[in-house]
Design a protein around this nucleic acid. Structure first.
Length: 712
DNA sequence: GCAAGGTC
């Protein structure tokens, strides 16, 4: 008989197998497309099988797939992941992957008499391991299973945690994990069903999916809150001086010591005083400042830079990073670690990257240094920071992949660099009795910046010519009228950071949940604006379930789970409490179902109408082109709102998502002298492309995919 | 067709 070792993921399985095998060469077994390992240690045979995250999930007893949105849903059960996929009619590759894996687990467990859980030592990892064992050997016998507890995949920790495992699973931790799943399910499914059914029962809407949960709720609420403060903002007029100092045919911007004038008379007095006067340099201050090298990337850091330099969505960044990881080009991306572990072979990685001509000179330079990596504050027991592995991309990466990969390589290089040194010069410029400043900065020592062309390129470090004390210049001063600005809108990255700060969601789920808010049409645009649906959803929830909109709900859940971990309370108490609360909430909801549905229905219809607008009609006055549906064929097309007076219409793809671009086609303007709107078309599983609504009349049909745009 | 959390 053998020992079954369960790990959370394939990568960890491979590492643990290699460490535990006495010859460090475990045998790879492939069965039904599943890979696991056979190792030998201390006269025992170890069979190490990896999960792929959760293999089980919560469901409810009456769930019969499509169409059943009854509530309340209180009778929960746990089912294998693949069963859920089957319910969703998704018997895809993933379905068979999960199903085969569970089959293998069951099969392997039958030739074992010892069981060890080696998943991450946290509530999710504990739940993953327990659910698999329960399925394989039954709830009773799980009591004989042991637990490896380690905080990093190093040889010392792995061997130690294997030789001295915890004598049993941590059942409190497992209970709290199960509890977390069930609480999220109870709130999420019940409230989503209640919202969805409220509009379904009305005439105008056949079915519109509305969802809400512990993380979606507060995130949407924050976006709506921001929108309200933008709408309520009353701009205030102010004036500022736009000034230049002239020197050898060049103009250098100077700033008045008083940056904003709220009284127009005051700024006029200053400008009067300065009229026809020259500026004198009355003081020179030089100071050095340093910009430290970056800390190693964790997922958040990578998402941040990918947004700052390339405006990639956090969810795109995660997806690309995952694909680079699966190609073995970078380490595991779902990490929060910012500290390079001592065990990482830095030299080897750089030597491997040296073979790539693009990085060769930087690698050569790095290899001359003593390599001490900079580090950040965050650590992660499960994974190191994101670094290149040293493998060179074999086939070409696409542009997005290449950009993300370069960010990771250059960040890795930069962490070994010295601080970059800048010299700041501040000239005090007096014009009559008024004070202005001219500032510039010079990069005097590139430090780490020489290892990071992406950051260096975006740097503004324009120096000033050396001026002398008492030097006199002609100046140019103008009055500019300005208005105070409302608070800035969130973008997908800044709202992700807000979630991170408030500790809702996890590093791997935040960007997905933001994406979900877009998919549900709760929010729109890159500078995020809630739609009418988003606004009225928050209105309804504020009245009936304010708790689902607060970050405090997550805090409370965490407190409850801590208490379960400490053995102070039982999971059932928490679940029963949630059910009682939901009973009251759902009761009120049901009573007011019609009025709730009505207000949501109006918003849904309006949001759809808004989003169907493509642009102005090129052939009539005041007409609007819209996506319409033919009554006869039920197919969609683009038509003018002035029909039947105006019969302008265009065919459009029946599949895919159409987004107006607020731009018109340059080709058509030159050719026909009319403004035809451009749209973006996203066909399923294809790259989105830009096209003119009138592309069928272009001479060269290929023009439809060219971004030949002109702003309106 | 639904949550949030793991992971390929």
């Amino acid at each position: 008989m053998s020992v079954l070792v369960i790990t959370e993921k394939p990568l960890a399985c491979k590492k643990i197998a290699k460490i535990l095998d006495e010859k460090n060469s475990p045998k790879l077994v492939k069965l039904k497309n599943v890979e696991y390992y056979r190792a030998e240690r201390g006269g025992k045979v170890l069979l190490l099988v990896p999960a792929i995250g959760h293999l089980f999930t919560v469901s409810h007893k009456k769930e019969e797939g499509k169409g059943n949105f009854e509530y309340p849903v209180f009778d929960l059960k746990w089912v294998p992941n693949y069963e859920k996929l089957a319910l969703a009619r998704k018997k895809n590759r993933q379905y068979y992957q999960y199903k085969n894996l569970l089959d293998i687990f069951k099969k392997v467990s039958q030739v074992c008499n010892e069981y060890i859980v080696a998943c991450d030592y946290d509530i999710e990892g504990s739940t993953i391991g327990y659910k698999i064992l329960e399925y394989c050997i039954g709830g009773e016998r799980v009591s004989i299973a042991k637990r490896m507890k380690f905080s990093s995949l190093t040889e010392r920790e792995i061997i130690n945690s294997y030789e001295c495992p915890m004598p049993s699973l941590n059942f409190n931790l497992i209970e709290s994990g199960i509890c977390r799943h069930e609480v999220d399910y109870l709130f999420g499914i019940n409230l989503s069903h209640a919202l969805t059914l409220s509009t379904t029962k009305l005439e105008k809407i056949n079915f519109y999916l509305l969802t809400i949960g512990r993380v979606q709720g507060p995130t949407l609420a924050e976006l709506v809150e921001r929108e309200k403060s933008i709408l309520q903002f009353i701009p205030e007029d102010y004036w500022k001086i736009k000034g230049f100092l002239k020197f050898q045919g060049k103009k250098y911007p100077i700033e008045c010591v008083k940056k904003r004038f709220y009284d127009e008379n005051e700024i006029d007095r200053v400008l009067d005083r300065c009229k026809n006067k020259q500026g004198v340099i009355s003081d020179i201050k030089k100071s050095d400042f340093y910009r430290n090298p970056p800390v190693p990337y964790n997922l958040s850091g990578l998402q941040d830079d990918a947004w700052n330099f390339f405006k990639y969505n956090p969810s795109t960044t995660l997806k690309i990073a995952e694909s680079l990881y699966l190609k073995s080009l970078i380490s595991y991306p779902r990490t929060s670690n910012q500290v390079i572990p001592k065990s990482l072979n830095i030299n080897q990685i750089i030597q491997s990257l040296e073979k790539c001509t693009e990085y060769k000179s930087l690698c050569d330079e790095l290899l001359k240094l003593q390599l001490v990596p900079n580090k950040g504050k965050k650590t992660d027991p499960a994974h190191p920071p994101i670094t290149p592995t040293g493998n060179i991309p074999a086939e070409g990466l696409n542009k997005t992949e290449k950009n993300i990969y370069n960010l990771i390589v250059y960040n890795f290089f930069s962490i070994f660099g010295q601080p970059a040194k800048f010299e700041k010069t501040k000239y005090k410029v007096m014009i009559d009795t008024d004070t202005f400043y001219l500032t510039g900065q010079n990069l005097v020592d590139k430090g780490w910046l020489k290892f990071n062309p992406i950051v260096a390129k975006g740097l503004k470090a324009e120096g000033l010519p050396p001026f002398n004390l008492g030097q006199i210049f002609d100046v140019e001063l103008k009055k500019e009228k300005k208005q105070t600005k409302p608070p800035a809108r969130y973008n997908p990255n800044s709202i992700r950071k807000w979630m991170e700060k408030n500790e809702i969601g996890t590093k791997s789920t935040r960007s997905e949940i933001i994406k979900k808010l877009y998919e549900r049409k709760y929010i729109k645009n890159k500078l995020i604006e809630p739609t009418k649906i988003g606004m009225s959803l928050i209105d309804v929830l504020k009245r009936y379930v304010p708790e689902i909109l607060s970050v405090e709900m997550t805090r409370e859940l965490e407190r409850m789970m801590n208490k379960i971990e400490m053995g102070e309370i039982h999971k059932d108490d928490v679940i029963n409490n949630v059910k009682e609360r939901l009973m009251i909430i759902l009761g009120k909801f049901k009573a007011d179902e019609m009025s709730i549905g009505k207000s949501l229905e109006d918003s849904i219809i309006k949001t759809y109408e808004e989003q169907s607008i493509i642009g102005k009609c090129p052939n009539c006055d005041g007409g609007t082109l819209k996506i319409l549906y033919s009554k006869k064929t039920k197919k969609r097309f683009i038509g003018c709102s002035n029909y039947p007076k105006c019969t302008t219409s265009f065919p459009i793809s029946q599949k895919g998502k159409i987004t107006p671009l607020n731009k018109y086609c340059k080709y058509c303007e030159d050719e026909f002298g009319k403004k035809y709107p451009m749209v973006r078309l996203q066909l399923p599983k294809k790259r989105p492309f830009t096209t003119c609504v009138n592309w069928a009349n272009h001479k060269k049909r290929t023009d439809k995919t060219k971004g030949d745009l002109k702003d309106e």
